[in-house]
């Protein structure tokens, strides 16, 4: 079966406060950089084998729903690449 890398990006839903991002932004500003906004996200790369790209995506989506993201506060997106 072909190998895939599914890249899962998990970020806070719009409107959910992100104190770590705010602190990081302030630190950049203290270093003299001008910045309008800063958002942070977690990224996971899953190497797996699957029959095709769709089933690779489906499995990664299930993993994301079950563990990697918390649907109360997170949105996520997936990108599938053949390995």
């Amino acid at each position: 079966m072909p190998g895939y890398t599914v890249t899962v990006t998990v970020r806070l839903k719009e409107g959910v406060l992100d104190p770590e991002a705010e602190t990081t932004q302030r630190a950049l500003e203290r270093l003299g950089f001008e910045i309008a906004d800063l958002r942070s996200a977690d990224q996971f790369e899953l190497d797996l084998t699957a029959g095709d790209a769709d089933s690779a995506r489906q499995r990664a989506e299930e993993m994301t729903e079950r563990l990697l993201a918390n649907p109360t506060i997170h949105d996520y997106e997936l990108a599938v690449d053949e390995r």
């Binding site: 992100d18 104190p19 770590e20 109360t72 506060i73």
Partner: peptide
């Protein structure tokens, strides 16, 4: 409890970070 769905919502990073 919240992560496991026993109670609704989520506890996340303090406003103060």
């Amino acid at each position: 409890g919240c992560e496991g769905g026993l109670t609704p919502g989520a506890f996340t990073t303090n406003r103060s970070a």
